[in-house]
């Protein structure tokens, strides 16, 4: 429960940080903003890396590899 509350706190505060910085982005940069935020949402990659590397079962490894591929593509294209 304590871990959850910490995680929830981080989530809520991060949403506020997000609102603060994004409101200042001018319309000219909305497309780069979308592509950039798209790329960093590829951060799921680290979850994918853990799942793949843990090699708990064949299925979970396959799912992990699929996630690694998708998340890597996302990060590459947006941050190119």
């Amino acid at each position: 429960m304590e871990a959850f509350l910490t995680a929830l706190t981080i989530f809520v505060l991060a949403v506020f940080v997000g609102f603060e910085i994004i409101t200042k982005v001018p319309p000219t940069l909305h497309t780069p903003l979308m592509s950039g935020s798209n790329a960093i949402s590829g951060i799921t990659l680290i979850g994918a890396v853990i799942s793949t590397g843990a090699q708990e079962s064949t299925v979970s490894t396959i799912l992990g590899v699929a996630a690694v591929i998708l998340a890597t593509i996302t990060s590459w294209v947006g941050l190119w």
Binding site: F11, A14, V15, V17, I22, S37, I40, I43
Partner: peptide, 12 residues
């Protein structure tokens, strides 16, 4: 880091 990044993108 997933939670922080995800919520930044969500807010954006």
């Amino acid at each position: 880091v997933l939670i922080i990044t995800g919520s930044l993108v969500g807010a954006s």
